[in-house]
Amino acid sequence: MSAGFAGADLAHLFGHFMMLSLLSIGGAMSTAPEMHRYLVGDRGWLSDAAFTSAIALAQASPGPNVLFVPVLGFQVAGLPGAAAALVGILLPSTLMSLAVSRWSARRRDTLAVRAFTTGLAPVTVGLMFVASWVLVQPFVRDGSHILGASGLIAMTVLLMLTTGAAPIWLICAGALAGAIGWV
């Protein structure tokens, strides 16, 4: 937490994150470069390492990736900072999402809305494959764990497609395999 962080700073943080909320198409992570510019470069409230560790921490813990935002806020100004950052990043996008989804639900039989879901479905599925490709990159780059990781990935895919197992058991198995050094 930086010294001399005033109420005016908190309001500025809140306002800036409200603006970023409306730009966060594709998820909050897409605004991470701009948050870095604002928090580390512009305002000097956080160090580079603190910024990176906030993202790593949020990705390592359960829940949506957007939770790196309150961690950033927490590192800047404790619990009030966490609250300002989280509410700021969520409030405008939440209101807009609700309005648009209600609007499209009322018009779901019109050509325009049917074309929207029909046309976007292949793009969405393409993005799911891109996401798994992005997630596998650390294993490809590192190289030393590629064999164990490949085995774990293949086993997960197989069990997900053939059984009704809850993901948590697979995640626990993965954590165990990693902790004893197999992956």
């Binding site: 390592a60 479905a121 292949p122 969405t124 599925v125 799911m128 494959f129 996401a131 798994s132 997630l135 596998v136 650390p138 294993f139 764990h145 164990g148 990781a149 774990l152 990935i153 293949a154 086993m155 997960t156 895919v157 997900m160 497609l161 993901p167 697979l170 995640i171 198995a173 993965g174 954590a175 165990l176 395999a177 990693g178 902790a179 004893i180 050094g181 197999w182 992956v183």
Partner: peptide, 26 residues
């Protein structure tokens, strides 16, 4: 670190399996 790596590998598998499942509605 090892446990996080193992969980990461499972996350890759979960995401890829979901992509495969979504080919059916496509």
């Amino acid at each position: 670190a090892g446990a996080l790596r193992g969980m990461g590998a499972v996350a890759v598998g979960l995401m890829f399996a979901m992509g495969l499942k979504m080919l059916a509605p496509l």
